[in-house]
Design a protein around this nucleic acid. Structure first.
Lengths: 221, 221
DNA sequence: GTTGCAATCTAACGCCCGTTTGAATAGCCT
DNA sequence: AGGCTATTCAAACGGGCGTTAGATTGCAAC
């Protein structure tokens, strides 16, 4: 039983570990894990790269931890969405929306893109299985939507690929200090992408600042 | 005036150079340019990595050449689509469809994803400008579609991000030896994604093999 | 055959970056 | 104050990979 005033050293460790994962995730999601050096990650945190090794055993495990975290967020978002009432399409919408918002909040980056080649070893297989399970459950939601009439007849695999492409791509162009809030981005992108699946879409979309402010945006191709 | 029987040595050079770019593009689009070694590229072509240097000055220029090629294809697809009759949405559909089909045919990979961090130097600025120009013209097509009523009122930037996300993501999961032909993939993904922009979608989609064949697909998250 | 050029190879060089080592610093307990 | 532990750092080590050098092979011209 620890007093709040006396910080638990183990908890301190965990806080710093999370900070490292967060910093790494932000760098990885844009540049790809292989082109990010531990020096890059350390500089974001204002420490030397050697200091990282008190919290992580090596770079590969850091990559795994990032993927693990992102997949946990995705899985939890999916679970929450499934537990709520609504059509298959509504659940898909909610799960993707939560995924974007939670990754931004917890990792500081909207979605974490996996390069499967970056994964090796036994843990890698676990991550891949986790990802496959997530995508599989998403496809089931599509099938559910087809059955309940909220989604037009589509190939579930293709539909999920399309949705995840639109959603994961956000990581390439979203800027925390940009014009749009996380909520605006999540609602607009998910709203648009899922509209593609409506049998006869009637949903309207919030329109955000149609006038183009002359800002120099460097975003991904 | 060369005879067909006597191959022009300069042309031979160019053919091999193109083969290198193609092999590199396939590797880059999946793994990211930074995690692909020149040995990887050389092995795909059955030569040693030193042999590559007769055709490219260095790795960075190879990355640039891949981006250049992909952007040329994208730009030409856009130009062809614009020159044809039709609504703004129809032009967007056509340009994206051609982009996927042409990159698969010419580069052997559907879309080439840019990691802007991989680019350096003066040529890099040229590539970024080319990409910005392409995206800007895409946004204009969205505005055109809004005006002619083929597209519902949306923020053009977001709409283009959503479309390009769905389209570029194909590079992560498409397999040449897979279940779907390039045409099927292009039609389905572009058909789905652009449906999101229809004011009141009535378009139907071809449905391909809804039954799931028990194939083990390893695709990107 | 011999010469010359093009193409490719193997082997080595050197830098970058992940990882380790050992010392320096800062807080906490008695 | 003095020791103990937890953190952090600068510096060095070592492997991987881009790049270069020099040798080898193959082919065309004469």
């Amino acid at each position: 039983m620890w007093s709040d005033a006396i910080p638990d050293p183990a908890a301190q460790q965990e806080i710093k570990r999370k900070a490292i994962i967060r910093a790494a995730a932000q760098a990885f999601s844009r540049q790809g894990s292989h082109s990010v050096t531990l020096d890059d990650v350390a500089k974001r945190l204002g420490v030397s790269k050697a200091a990282l090794y008190r919290y992580i055993p090596n770079k590969h495990s850091l990559i795994l931890a990032c993927q693990d975290e992102a997949l946990d967020i995705a899985g939890q978002a999916l679970a929450r969405a499934i537990s709520e009432q609504g059509t298959g399409l509504a659940k898909i919408r909610q799960s993707l929306r939560l995924y974007l918002l939670d990754t931004i909040e917890q990792l500081g980056v909207p979605a974490l893109i996996l390069e499967d080649n970056a994964l090796r070893g036994d843990d890698a297989a676990r991550i891949l299985q986790k990802r496959d399970s997530y995508e599989s459950r998403m496809r089931e939601l599509v099938s559910e939507g087809c059955a309940d009439g909220s989604i037009l007849p589509v190939e579930p695999k293709m539909a999920v690929f399309m949705l995840l492409g639109a959603v994961h791509w956000v990581a390439k162009w979203y800027r925390p200090d940009g014009r749009w809030s996380p909520e605006t981005v999540a609602d607009t992108i998910v709203g648009l992408a899922t509209r593609a699946l409506e049998p006869a879409p009637t949903s309207t979309l919030a329109i955000h600042l149609p006038q183009d402010q002359a800002r120099e945006d460097r975003h991904a191709f």
